[in-house]
Amino acid sequence: MAKIKEVAQLANVSISTVSHVVNGTRYVSPKTKEQVQAAIATLGYKANSAARALKAGSFQTIAMLVERSTNPFFSEVVQAFEEVCFNEGFLLTISICDGHEERQVEQMKFLQARGADGYAILLESISGGLAKLLRNENQTPTIALDSGEYEDIPSFKDNSFLGGQIAARHFAELGRRRILVLAGPERHSRMMDRLSGFQQEWSMNGFDVDDVRIVHSPLTFSAGFKATMNAGTKLAKVDGVMALCDALAIGSMAAISQLGRQVPEEIAVIGYDNIEMSKYTSPTLTTVSQSASRFGRAAAEAIISNIKGENTGTSDQLVQPRLLKRGSTAT
């Protein structure tokens, strides 16, 4: 990204002159202003909103309620979300909770007491108590990221049903028919959407749903490992593992290796999320990508636009997933 010093050098003016043109803080002659604007356009310079806000002491804040989780997808989403906030002059504060309703409500009351210009919710599911608090705060822009759906709370999520269908089609193409599905928690609405999409596509292809074994577990590496190890002798009949998040898939691949089976020769594995680590497993992990960084950036841009009054819509927004074929399903 171009720096203000480079703009000044190209326009043959001082850094302070560039600053005055960008911020409109002092009169600059039309000719000089034109030179600066031309340099900005040539270099693609973007003013640092965060720096301006810090100098003016005028940071706006977004408070985020985040699930306590070792799933890297959540941390990658938060990192991308925070980067957009900082660049736009917003301060992101984070409060971590678990899935219990009482904890969600307590944490949200704490955030509301401190006040914020917007709220972002990144949880496995939104409890009824939390939804009521958010509904009562309907004057403050709020968005739910990958947190299911609840009336009056706009959500930003991937098309999980389609993602499940995409995975099922790939297994069908590979000729794999006996599938172990690591499905995550039953209360997690996106996991259930992915599972429903997988099952529907499986049936539409004429395959026996009884050949699909479903195991529910937390969204962690260790849960994927344990679920696969616990499959034990039954794993001998499995030729595919569909994990509804990459953490489960990576844990499962470790267990498959420990049990003496080969990926993908004997068991093909598909994950979901496309976390950074999925590119560095051995073999590399085939995954249904919803791009955590793109997801986090787009969600942050949406709520900031709402806070600024540029977009007051409350409709849900869907990220369309796509399959990334890698080594864990290579033939």
Rank of each mutant, 00 (worst) to 15 (best):
C85M: 10
A167F: 08
Q104L: 05
H100I: 10
S14L: 03
A131K: 13
T329M: 10
L318D: 01
K237E: 12
Y280F: 13
V212W: 04
R26L: 03
V13D: 02
V18P: 06
V215G: 04
R114E: 04
Q107K: 14
I126N: 01
G197N: 08
M1A: 15
R322C: 00
G24W: 03
R297H: 09
L285W: 03
G184T: 04
G24P: 04
S19R: 11
S315D: 13
N48Y: 05
Q37M: 13
S75G: 10
Q199S: 12
Q107H: 14
A47S: 14
L10F: 03
I15S: 04
H170S: 07
F161Y: 09
F161G: 01
S58L: 08
A63C: 08
F198G: 05
Q320V: 14
R213N: 07
R261Y: 15
A292F: 02
L324D: 02
A53D: 03
K33A: 02
A231R: 11
G313S: 15
T233S: 12
T93K: 13
I15V: 13
M277I: 02
L219N: 04
S16K: 13
S19F: 10
G115L: 08
S155I: 06
S125I: 05
E124R: 13
S203A: 15
S252I: 09
V241N: 05
S257R: 15
T17V: 11
T142M: 09
P283F: 07
E67H: 00
L182M: 05
L65H: 04
A56G: 02
Q165S: 13
T233G: 05
A236T: 13
M108R: 08
A41C: 02
L182E: 01
S95F: 06
N87K: 13
G184Q: 04
G327A: 08
Q139I: 08
A183Q: 02
M1Q: 12
G115N: 05
V21L: 01
T331C: 07
L323A: 06
F59L: 15
M108S: 06
V263K: 02
A172R: 11
L92K: 05
L195Q: 07
M108Q: 12
G163K: 07
G232K: 15
A172F: 08
L134C: 01
A51G: 15
D210R: 13
G313I: 08
R176H: 07
I256Y: 03
